[in-house]
Design a protein around this nucleic acid. Structure first.
Length: 343
DNA sequence: CGATTTTGACCCGCGC
DNA sequence: GCGCGGGTCAAAATCG
């Protein structure tokens, strides 16, 4: 389920706080292994982050920069800039808003995780009619945000199953919710919506982790037969065509088709701008950012198409400590999007 | 028949 | 405490 996922987010949250405050203490959690790759020998994370970046990017032209922007701190992993601007070709790994302006001590690095037995004020009642429903505080979620073209979305070897669609207030287009269908217990999810600034682009949020290796052949996966955007029967004839939903597509024919450097563009959508935390407020979308430069093709080859290089199930996933964030995997594509009611 | 999509309802975090 | 908004569930419909 999402339990591990939650822990990871909590760890990352703490890690970000540590870096942002330069305090660099050890993580106040028992589940530190998940992000040990960010930790150095001194028990801090700054060095580890740099190393992690080197793992991801190979020969990075410059070391990763930990920077702060206004009231919000963020990781910035520049390739060609010492400090990249958020809009200059970044993939944003969003996390919960740390409210760094209020973060003064490690005590503030607090995990509102009921499953960690910490300070959460929320827990599922015993009478929960949906005991399997795993919810976490919005600001506890870690997201990776990417802007992708339809081609990019199609270049995905993961199998995604749509489980919801919601109109988002203030957004022209609805948001579509997908979860990984490769493995039943897989917590990997993604949200796809059209960029409000460029309907030709899609803003994709990746959350959760894949609990299984990347499938080598989509054709062997359950459900892929209906996840083809290009399928005339499904798209043009199906009832959802006129609704403009974001439909999944599979991409078994293009296992190596992902070319992030050409398509992952500057983050100009509203979500990412909010993620910049310009107002330093407490908006739900006002999340801390773990930014990775999208113009580093190797980086995303590693994340998205590592198996293209015969690296097995995720080239970066070389250890059990989240060497390869599974939520970095690209998702399926989307078609035209309009509101559907409800919600 | 099995898997996915659709879609209304439900749940819950969060701001006021 | 209340209401809004977002995320998820799950039954029905659909497809191959």
């Amino acid at each position: 389920m999402d339990d591990d996922d939650w822990d990871l987010h909590a760890v990352v949250r703490g890690c970000a706080a540590v870096i942002a405050t330069s305090a660099a203490p050890t993580l106040p959690t028992t589940d530190q292994n998940s992000f040990d790759f960010l930790k150095d020998d001194n028990g801090t994370y700054f060095q580890g982050l740099q190393e992690a970046y080197r793992e991801l990017c190979g020969d990075a032209p410059s070391p990763p920069t930990i920077t702060t922007a206004g009231a919000t701190s963020m990781f910035s992993l520049p390739v060609t800039h010492s400090v990249l601007q958020p809009r200059q070709g970044m993939v944003h790994i969003l996390k919960a808003p740390l409210q760094m302006n209020n973060l003064q001590s490690q005590e503030n690095i607090h995990f509102n995780n009921p499953r960690l037995g910490s300070s959460s004020s929320h827990s599922f009642p015993a009478t929960n009619p949906h005991p399997n429903r795993q919810r976490r505080r919005k600001n506890q979620q870690m997201k990776i945000v990417r802007q992708m073209t339809q081609e990019e979305l199609s270049a995905d070897s993961w199998a995604w199953r749509k489980y919801g669609q919601k109109p988002i207030k203030g957004s022209t287009y609805p948001r579509n919710y997908y979860r990984c269908s490769t493995s039943k217990g897989c917590a990997a999810r993604k949200q796809v919506e059209r960029s409000p600034n460029d309907p030709g682009l899609f803003v994709v949020y990746f959350t959760g982790e894949h609990t299984h290796p990347r499938p080598t052949h989509r054709s062997s996966l359950a459900g892929i037969t209906r996840s083809k955007l290009s399928s005339p029967g499904r798209i043009s004839a199906a009832k959802n065509n006129n609704k403009g939903n974001l439909n999944m597509i599979s991409s078994s024919s293009s296992p190596a088709g992902f070319t992030p450097s050409t398509t992952v563009v500057a983050a100009e959508n509203n979500e990412v701008e909010m993620a910049e935390d310009e107002d330093g407020g407490r908006d739900d979308d006002d999340e801390n950012i773990f930014m990775i430069p999208n113009d580093d093709e190797d980086l995303f080859k590693g994340f998205h198409d590592s198996d293209d290089h015969s690296s097995g199930a995720g080239g970066l996933c070389t250890s059990g400590s989240l060497a390869s964030p599974p939520w970095m995997n690209t998702g399926s594509a989307a078609n035209a999007a309009t509101f559907r009611g409800g919600g």
